[in-house]
Design a protein around this nucleic acid. Structure first.
Lengths: 194, 194
DNA sequence: CTATTTTATTAAACCAGTTTAACGGGTTTG
DNA sequence: CAAACCCGTTAAACTGGTTTAATAAAATAG
């Protein structure tokens, strides 16, 4: 039997949901196990699932002229998907790839939509989790607008230090919007100043 | 009598809402008229309203060391607010200022939340509008990650040409993440190449 | 345990955009 | 209508990052 405890608590952290409804919902979340390097989504596919990351790390990125451009790193206890592909049912241009052995729960779009229709409580959960996702993304835009590369590097080091253990440096560089060479120079500069 | 036609159609573009419920909701949207330069929100205040922009242009920005950092321009037929302040009920650090004579409809947070509680249809509207806002913001992050300043300038020129008529150039520059000087050089470079 | 691939650093030349400052055209205001 | 301010451009010196390439170190596979 799949253990949905963390996912259950995550949903309940947004709003109250009657136990019967929530249990009926959770049956539809399938467990997916990914080995390091496995792909959840690749360009050309249409994303029709929404995910909850139970354990591991997933990299959300694009390839442009053979270069990787990291959009986000997903780690424990977050929801994710390629929302543009999911909502518009268009082929994606992104990858979702496991950077380590990973376990996610996945729900099918049709199932999720039916749940939202049938339960006001789940619809509210949907709204509030989307609202939270928006706010997180917004603070990211704020940082990209207001802060220098150096400030953003230091902030990432402070806020998500575990990322630097789990993820190769050139992906961190890409996430920060610089080249590996640029990151190397930045680190050196910081080291000699401090 | 206030004319809520555009706002009504906007809400209905997301999902079906029974006429009685929608009409009952719209009474709570108050009309606010702003002269050019008027402020809807300033740092230190807590935002407790959600807005729909009926006519005009509002600039959402921060001040940092006396410098303006534009986060977004809102124009006709969009919803907006300072969501972080609105949701967390914290003092804002942003401005919402009219760049021209502007008319918005505003709904109070408590009223909006009550509506979401009382109507599953309005809750769905809330979820779907938030989802759309997320997707728009996400494509912005994508562009900031993937595109050069020049590409982003050309895209803005193509997608929102009216902005260049309505908004001073130094605010456009700020929105693109460069200085007025930088924008000037960029334009010159484009002019001599083309 | 060696060979291969992947990842990180460094150097050197280069470039897009910054900072500072000056100038000039436009527009508002008294 | 003159004064003041706002705004956009230009110039010059500078800087933080890029590109390319070489090398070294670490991880992975055979």
């Amino acid at each position: 039997m799949k253990n949905h405890t963390n996912l259950r608590n995550k949903i309940l952290s947004y709003t109250q949901v009657d136990d019967e409804i929530l249990t009926g919902e959770l049956v539809h979340y399938d467990q997916i196990l990914l080995a390091k390097g496995d792909t959840l989504l690749a360009p050309g596919k249409v994303e029709n699932r929404f995910y909850y990351l139970e354990k591991g790390c997933v990299c959300y990125y694009k390839e442009q002229d053979g270069e990787i451009k990291v959009l986000e790193f997903y780690t424990e206890d977050v929801f994710f998907t390629d929302l543009l592909s999911y909502v518009n049912e268009e082929t994606s241009s992104c990858y979702l790839k496991a950077l380590e052995d990973t376990m996610v729960f996945a729900v099918n779009k049709k199932v999720a939509e039916t749940s939202f229709e049938n339960s006001h409580q789940l619809e509210r959960f949907g709204r509030l989790s989307m609202q939270e996702a928006f706010m997180k993304l917004f603070t990211r835009v704020e940082r990209m607008t207001l802060r220098s590369n150096e400030e953003r590097y230091l902030r990432l080091l402070e806020k998500r230090p575990e990322l630097f253990q789990r993820v190769p440096n050139y992906l961190i560089a890409s996430y920060l919007g610089i080249t590996p060479v640029g990151l190397s120079k930045l680190r050196k500069r910081l080291a000699t100043v401090g």
